[in-house]
Structures are given as C-alpha cells and as structure tokens.
Design a protein around this nucleic acid. Structure first.
Lengths: 270, 270
DNA sequence: GAGTGGTCTAGACCACACG
DNA sequence: GTGTGGTCTAGACCACTCT
C-alpha cells in the first residue's frame, strides 16, 4: 500500500510493553531508538518527512503521548524539526554522544577506537580556597583533593586534566592505583553518580606545566573546557579544568528555539 | 505557616487559562516562568527542594501533566534535577540565553548593555564549492553569497564573521545597506526564520585577514565557532564561521543524563 | 476544509527513595 | 509503607499549514 514503511515494521520486538522501564528501558526510549535508526539509515530521506504522530502511534501500538515523548528526544538531539501544521522534517544524522561518553575521556576514546591513556602526575589534599568552596559547595575549612593527569590518545599527549574533588569523592580517588585509566568508571562502582554538568569552553595560553606535559610551547593556545558535575541530589562531585591541544578536539552543540542550553558569555569569570 | 509558599501564591494572573497559546504563551510556559523566577529569587534555597508535582498542580490550578511540561523546561536549562522517589532539587541559577540572543550578535550585545557594531568588509556572490553545497544542501551550479564582517562591542573589535548564505537568503542580505547592524533581525522581517542550529567550537590560528581586522598577530589563537542554521522546514539558511579574540567570550553548555546535545569530536572535519 | 502538531486533562500503575 | 517522580493511556480542543 502507500505506506512509508520500510524495514521498520510495526510493534517493537520482545517485551510485552507494559509500563515502567523494562529490561531495555522505557517504551518511548525504544520507540525513539527505532526511529533514530530509521532516520540515520535514511529511511525517510535527507530532508524527508516523518509519518504523522497518529500513524506512528498506531504502527508501534502505543498512545500518541508516548510517541510524542519519543519524538521529543529526537527533537532535542537535532534529528528532526517540529512545528504546528506540518509533518516533522528530518534535519540530519546528528550523532550526539551519550552523556557518559562526554564525561569520560576513556569512554569517549574507546568509542572512537582509540586507546586512552592516563598518567597521574600528582594528587594532593589541601584546604579549599574560596572559589573551590563556592563551586563544590563546601563549608569553610573543608579540604579538597586535586589531581593532575596527562591524557593520551594511542600514546599521543592530548589533554591536561586538573580535577578538584570534594572530600567524599576525593577519598575514593586517592585510593585508586595511579595507573587506573578511568576514574569515572571506578567512582560509579562506588556509588558516585554523574548526572548533570555545566561546561564552559574558551581559549587559554599554556603555562609552564602545560607546555612540559603536552610538549608544546609555553604560551601556546589551548582549548579549555571547565566542567562542574553534580550527582542526582545536586551535590557537586567534581570541578575540572581540561586543556586540549588545538586541532585534536572540537566541541559540538545543537540547540533550537525549542531547547536551548547553550550560551555565550563575555570575558572570563575567573 | 508550614507552607513553602513565598510571594508566589497560587494561580497565574490574568488570562483564563484555557487551552492553546494565549497572549503570553502556553500555560506550561507561564508556570515555568513563574517557577524560574521563584528559583532564581532563592525562594527554595540554594540546594533546596521543590514542592511535589501534585502540590504544584494544585497551586497553579493545572493538571500534573502541565506541571511536568513546565518542569521539563527547567530541567533542560539545568535549573533543577529530577529522579524517581524524591523531590526535585534546585541545582543553581543558570542564566541560559534565549535562542535569539545566541544567534544574533546584536541581540546578545544589547542584552549585556553593550553597543554592538558591524562593519561589512565585503559581500560577494560566487559559485558554491562542494563543501558549501553539502552544508547548505544546494544543487550543483548553485551560487552562494559570502559576507565578511568585523563585529565590535562598544567600538572594540571582538569577532570576525564569515557567513555563507544560500541564494534565497543571500538576495535579501545583498539588498541591505552596509551599515545595518543586525542581519538576523532584518531577515526575520522578510520571513526568514532561524529555528535550529548546530555549533562546533574549537581553536584556530589567525590568518592575515583576521589579524588585520582584529588587530592581533598573524597566527594568534582565536576561538572559532562554526554554525549551521536551518529554518523550521529544515532548510539551511546560513553557514557561518565566527572567530573571536580570546578572553572576550566563552561558551557555556548544560547537559545531563536526561538531555544531552553536547558532544566532543576528534580532529578537524574541514 | 482536512491534516498535523501543540497543549491540556484525568486517571492509572510502576519504580525508587527514605524513614 | 508512604510519598514522589517516571511512564502510559484516551480523549479533547486549538492553532497552524497547505491545498
């Protein structure tokens, strides 16, 4: 018939799609995943149109609300547009990393097929200064754990990472062997969860330490990413400052009238 | 009183809150705006908890679904967390610019109380190369309009902007007087809408032209933002490359397990 | 006018956090 | 166990787009 069906038949395999997150996850996530695959496979063409919400609801055997929830995910990822009156339009095959790939250098490197490395240069414990207490929401007199690591991609130096941990996270980090590649993964196993992060991206000049570790000139430009991460309770778990050699990395963001989490700031705040 | 109410009483003023976008906007947007103000005012404390969804629904006289829609907005902005089982927690007073403030240098500058300036250096029309046809989704043989502008903040050079427009937008830009400060605003008046954008941020060295315009050394590091913008139909309307003097600007993004539009890429793609 | 997405409602059950 | 957010449903009306 005239349907726009491709390989993607109706229903979702397995599970008896009841409520609640099943093995694979919520229903709307499975619908979203299926649609994402169909889109990136080119099932709807380059700038093609998606079927109507009602049609999708029928195809997947779910309510329209669930379909809309799935589409909201794709909307935020920049995969499709949406506006009243017309079918949704395919925007492009955005890749968008998972949150963990973004937070973890290790996870990110592996997803690219590169071998991540981490060389712990130093780990010290000292009283937090005012800025650190502010960022990590610590009481006066609290101490922080400060790590300095050189990160490599298949042996090549790429980034210098300076991370400041609050005490409850720092004690765990301090116990890790110095050759552990992924701190993030180990922390997760100890119940430290990373769920939200604020990133600020700009350019700085390499200081003597950066230059020595990265093998660049002192004063050479580096791409800097500062990141404050919190756990699900809103408690800060790290405040990190990563400095990348130019040309090794770039950051991408998608935003829209519907969802905008990107902003531009004047000057430096610190 | 034991209530967590502050100034923010119940109900929303004006309008008889029916369906559909009224004067001020959708109901959930007004709820979101009210909650945002309450949060940034500190009504719930630094790391305080929000009332339960049901309580908010009752207070505002709306359904729980509407409250959840409002909270989803604040969630995406990084203002509050959310997880099953516990009240939402206030994360911080994120500022997050509106989408238009982000796209329009002019709008952004004004929102900071600075005087934006734009000096059109050149505007030419020429055949699109392969990369441009790809980005703007043009047919072989199509032409593009290329502008070069020096952007200033209260008289100080800040950024060099190179924008490539597809024909249907370019013809409008070409008709603008060279001293028009905001191209974006004029295009909007002519029915060209900007709704979605993909940004890539990295570092590049200033070329001769950059150096001359910005008054920096040739080879000096610049913060580069490349941006591809589309209209609601998914049609590309501009492909721009902005180069900022370091220290004048920084980009911020919030992301989380729930919503992630940020990604990190290896090397340069072009 | 027909079709489509945007918004809103009311009710239901589940999974998880916490006391 | 109780409360809370997460997910899902079914139905409704509206605003907008397009033909």
């Amino acid at each position: 018939m005239g349907e726009t069906l491709t390989e993607h038949e109706n229903q979702l395999d397995g599970q008896d799609q009841k409520q609640g997150p099943d093995a694979g996850g919520a229903l709307y996530r499975r619908v979203a995943a299926d649609l994402r695959e169909a889109i990136t496979t080119g099932a709807y063409g380059e700038a093609g149109r998606l079927p109507a919400e009602g049609a999708l609801a029928e195809r997947y055997g779910v309510s329209r609300g669930t379909v809309r929830q799935a589409l909201a995910v794709l909307r935020a990822d920049g995969l499709v547009t949406s506006r009243r009156g017309t079918r949704r339009v395919v925007l492009g095959n955005a890749r968008v990393q998972s949150f963990s790939e973004l937070l973890s250098f290790t996870h990110w490197a592996r997803s690219m097929g590169e071998e991540p490395g981490g060389q712990l240069e130093s780990l010290i414990r000292r009283p937090a200064d005012a800025a650190e207490r502010e960022q990590l929401r610590l009481d006066p007199g609290a101490e922080v754990y400060v790590t300095l690591r050189l990160r490599t991609l298949s042996g090549t130096p790429v980034m210098v990472e300076r991370t400041i941990y609050p005490p409850h996270v720092g004690v765990l980090v301090a116990k890790l062997p110095p050759d552990v590649v992924s701190h993030t993964e180990h922390l997760r196993e100890h119940g430290i969860l990373f769920t939200d992060a604020d990133h600020t991206i700009d350019v700085v000049a390499a200081n003597g330490e950066d230059a020595k570790l990265l093998g660049c000139r002192r004063g050479a430009p580096l791409l800097r990413e500062r990141r404050r991460t919190t756990d699900p309770t809103g408690r800060p778990v790290e405040w990190s400052q990563d400095r990348y050699l130019p040309g090794m990395v770039a950051f991408s963001v998608h935003n829209s009238l519907a969802t905008s989490a990107l902003s531009r700031h004047a000057r430096e705040s610190d």
